[in-house]
Design a protein around this nucleic acid. Structure first.
Length: 841
RNA sequence: GCGAGAGUGGCGAAACUGGCAGACGCACUGGACUUAGGAUCCAGCGGGUUCAUCCCUUGGGGGUUCGAAUCCCCCCUCUCGCACCA
């Protein structure tokens, strides 16, 4: 054997992969057309942050998306499969400090590296639509959206206590605080009073909640549930309690309750220590100092310990009273450490008989307990109660409402409150408005300036973009250099022409990722963010794929943006949800845990590609586990994947004399004259059926297993294959099917072997094969034989045998006869072609 | 506590509407070919057993059914999310 022939015969992924990638690039094989008669399919994977290198999680995510894209193309869809970079963000600044470089330089270098890695993996992206969110061409439109939202009142500025991460030197949105810790660096989040810009996501609370119904079936149940809980809608009533003595200018204190039916059970009111009325209420009272101490102590607790479930309920009496709206009863005003300042009105009406928290609080401080709801067939006595009764029931001790059941009672109380101008039916959301100000440099500038005479003034639309200056000196302490960059901050007020200063906070990076999927529909457009027809054609994304860690954050913001952009007329009216279907893929673990540099257990995709080739890495990531499940990286597992591709390679190289250039499922029934040929053809068509169904259900692991079985069939068959053309046609057709079905997973090797088998066109251009039911039919079926539900044997029977024949044959079977000897056959269950169960006793 | 998901060989996993549990692969064992084998091929591979036999086996316990990994009830374990939301 010559050296030449030897190298030709071995599977060497590297050369093959480079060859086909170059070819695809040259032919623009994956460009999506915005004007095409075929049905559209938009598949998108969550775009990466350009952190430096692709990791295995990316490979898994993008391999899933790529298989979907390639299968859909072969199924005749016009597929949009784009890629881009979520390029603003903190790590760039931290890395810049560490490596003495500029965040932009670091980011663009990373993009180049990672783009090359993705290309080396052979993903079928339309690179002509690539975007990087840190480019002014991109974020200028985000600034437009900001201005339009501001006009519409959906952006506003307010001073409020904010989540402050001391290590990142910036505020965080509520969604970015996980268990009281910063989502990026795990530092304890502090509260800090700051004036910030907010997006009024709460204006869409109802729609965000209701439209979850549209996602049912397309999104994982748990993601829908998480969003529902996060939005946290409660219905009830707001109630105004008149203050006995006005506190400053305020005469009422307002609360929200989900249980207006318990209104007559209110015996006191509890305020959050942060409530703005606290100071006016206590001012001048003898215990004011003591109360202030309490407020200070609670306020200084961090969020984590304050919300711990071990925290004891604690409070202090302010000395002030409010009056019950219906009875005018005097109700003491207390402060309570468990009342949240940022939910509802920051004050609650306390109904100790029917709320566990109020019950505990009342017991601790000796406050009265009044039963106003009576459970069916029971009488509650406050002294005997060990816990609050929080269920519904009949209203008692409730004046004119006595006898009403809770549900109608809630409405009745709310109506009366409204009539007397003391409250009304109300809903409350847990969802907070989205603070988008970040005290960091590497982000999109907020297009606003501050003028001493005019206050905050928006930049003029035609002046956009407000460009983030690149010629700044980054600071070693991590703080933004923008406030001291005069060339940036100094500006002229567009309203009065006077001197003004630019806003130096930048936008939360989640702003960029909230609309990028829409930008891909016409990514190079310069005069507007979108082309309307392109949006109409491509949106919504048919299939979105990414990690479940974005179940709330990115996915909620994107849903909000879609609705807001629709209402601002950027999106066509019919587009209300961005992602029709969502697949949340599991993590790639190592040794049972997350891969991390500190543990030194990171499996580097590049190293794996060097060793095995891109096709093997893709194959293994898809074969190892179902996509939603976490999987533990296994070094011997990837060996197995590699072995399989070598096995496919050898089959085609060794049999190349006998493999004719047929396409998938091309052999006719007439070619399958022998038993062997019929079996091969049958397996071929069964595999097409199975792989087709599995691909639609995203069960790539079992789809690949089916292809492996087909390959095993071909290996066994080739030993027995006769030297005639009909059998070779059957064999070749099955071989072609193998490559066609495998090509979305391992495209390079399949293209190469396709070419080797004499095909002129690329396999990626082939149609997805169609299976023929007749080819899968069998003359003889194997029937399971059970006696009393236990398997006792099997039976070969003609496929056209009737029920009675099958029953007769079963009863005649020696194994069956042995087990029913001496017993009476009571019943025989026959499932034609499948099973006979004989019930005997 | 509430919500969602999961529990099947030594391991990753299959079994889609109840119908031959463990496909496919990893690891392992034996053999073939070999100067060699971390290559390749063939065979075996849930446990027990009297091994051409029969019994047991899908977290545990009940139930429905001719028949249950699958449906119902109770319990246990694990993962994730939310958690004083008034």
């Amino acid at each position: 054997m010559s050296q030449q022939r030897h190298t030709q015969q071995r599977y060497q992924p590297r050369n093959i992969e480079e060859k086909w990638q170059a070819k695809w690039r040259k032919n623009d094989a994956f460009g999506a057309s915005n004007n095409d008669a075929r049905p559209k399919y938009y598949v998108l994977e969550m775009f990466p942050y350009p952190s430096g290198n692709i990791h295995m999680g990316h490979v898994r995510n993008y391999s899933i998306g790529d298989v979907v894209a390639r299968v859909k193309r072969m199924r005749g869809f016009n597929v949009l499969h784009p890629m881009g970079w979520d390029a603003f963000g903190l790590p760039a600044e931290n890395a810049a400090i560490k490596n003495r470089t500029h965040p932009a330089a670091w980011t663009y270098a990373n993009i180049a590296t990672m783009r090359a890695q993705l290309q080396r993996l052979g993903y079928s992206y339309d690179w002509s639509r690539e975007i990087a969110t840190c480019r002014p061409e991109y974020y200028r439109f985000e600034q437009s959206f900001f201005l339009r939202l501001l006009e519409k009142g959906l952006v506003y500025r307010k001073k409020a206590p904010q989540n402050w991460c001391p290590s990142c030197h910036t505020v965080l949105a509520n969604e970015q605080v996980i268990d009281g810790l910063c989502w990026r660096c795990d530092s304890r989040v502090e509260q800090k009073d700051l004036t910030q810009w907010f997006l009024k996501i709460t204006a869409y609370g109802d729609e965000l909640l209701n439209d979850l119904a549209l996602l049912e079936g397309g999104w994982p149940e748990r993601v829908i549930t998480m969003q529902r809980n996060w939005i946290g809608k409660s219905t009830g009533a707001s109630v105004k309690f008149a203050l006995e003595k006005p506190a400053g200018n305020t005469r009422h204190i307002e609360v929200f309750t989900t249980r207006p039916d318990t209104l007559y059970g209110v015996t006191f009111i509890t305020l959050a220590p942060e409530h703005p009325l606290v100071e006016p209420l206590i001012e001048g009272r003898e215990n004011a100092a003591e109360t202030r101490d309490f407020v200070e102590r609670i306020r200084n607790m961090d969020r984590l310990s304050r919300q711990a479930d071990t925290l004891d309920k604690e409070g202090v009496f302010t000395g002030a009273y409010a009056l019950h709206p219906f009875t005018n009863e005097r109700l003491p005003l207390w402060l309570g450490n468990f009342v949240l300042a940022d939910y509802g009105t920051g004050a609650v009406m306390a109904v100790p008989a029917h709320d566990q928290r109020d019950f505990e609080f009342a017991h601790k401080y000796g406050l009265p307990i009044r039963v106003v709801i009576c459970p069916a067939g029971e009488r509650l006595v406050p002294q005997d109660m060990e816990a609050a009764f929080t269920g519904e029931g009949r209203m008692v001790n409730s004046g004119p409402f006595d006898g009403l059941e809770s549900t109608p009672g809630k409405t009745a109380v709310a109506e009366r409150l409204e009539q007397e101008d003391k409250g009304k039916a109300a809903v409350q959301f847990r969802l907070r408005d989205w603070n988008i100000s970040r005290q960091r440099y590497w982000g999109a500038p907020i297009p606003v300036m501050y003028c001493d005479t005019c206050g905050p003034v928006p930049e003029k639309e035609e002046k956009l973009p407000v460009i983030l200056p690149l010629d700044v000196k980054t600071r070693d302490d991590g703080r933004s250099p923008l406030p001291e960059t005069a060339s940036f901050t100094n500006c002229i007020c567009p309203r009065c022409g006077g001197e003004a200063r630019r806003e130096t906070d930048t936008m939360d990076t989640f702003m960029e990722s909230s609309w990028y999927f829409a930008r891909f529909t016409d990514a190079r457009k310069t005069d507007a963010p979108f082309d309307r027809q392109a949006l109409q054609y491509w949106l919504p994304v048919d299939q979105y794929i990414g990690g479940v860690e974005h179940a709330i954050l990115h996915l909620l913001y994107s849903r909000f943006f879609t609705k807001a952009l629709r209402d601002l007329d950027f999106f066509p009216p019919g587009i209300s949800e961005p992602f029709t279907r969502l697949l949340t893929q599991g993590m790639v673990l190592k040794d049972g845990g997350k891969m991390s540099k500190s543990k030194g257990n990171v499996v580097d995709p590049t190293e794996m590609m060097d060793k095995y080739g891109a096709d093997t890495v893709r194959l293994f990531c898809l074969f190892a586990a179902p996509p939603e499940r976490d999987f533990d990286w296994s070094d011997s597992g990837i060996d197995g994947a590699s072995r399989f591709l070598h096995r496919v390679w050898r089959l085609f190289v060794e049999e190349r004399e006998r493999i004719l250039p047929l396409t998938a499922c091309e052999a006719k029934a007439a070619d399958a004259a022998s038993d062997l040929a019929r079996d091969i053809r049958r397996r071929e068509h069964l595999t097409v059926k199975k792989v087709g169904e599995d691909m639609e259900r995203f069960q790539f692991n079992t789809a690949i297993a089916a292809v492996m079985e087909l390959v095993n069939t071909l290996y066994l068959a080739r030993e027995k294959l006769l030297d005639n053309e009909a059998e070779q046609r059957v064999f070749s057709s099955a071989a072609a099917t193998t490559l066609t079905l495998l090509s979305p997973v391992a495209p390079h090797i399949c293209e190469e072997l396709w070419e080797l088998s004499g095909h002129k066109d690329e396999i990626g251009k082939m149609s997805w094969p169609v299976w023929d039911a007749a080819a899968t039919a069998q003359d003889v079926l194997t029937v399971a034989l059970q006696v009393n539900g236990k398997l006792r044997g099997t039976l070969e029977i003609a496929a056209d045998a009737g029920r009675t024949d099958q029953e007769k044959a079963a009863l005649a079977d020696p194994a069956v006869r042995k087990h029913i000897a001496g017993l009476t056959v009571r019943r025989v269950i026959v499932v034609p072609g499948k099973l006979v169960n004989i019930v005997a006793g």
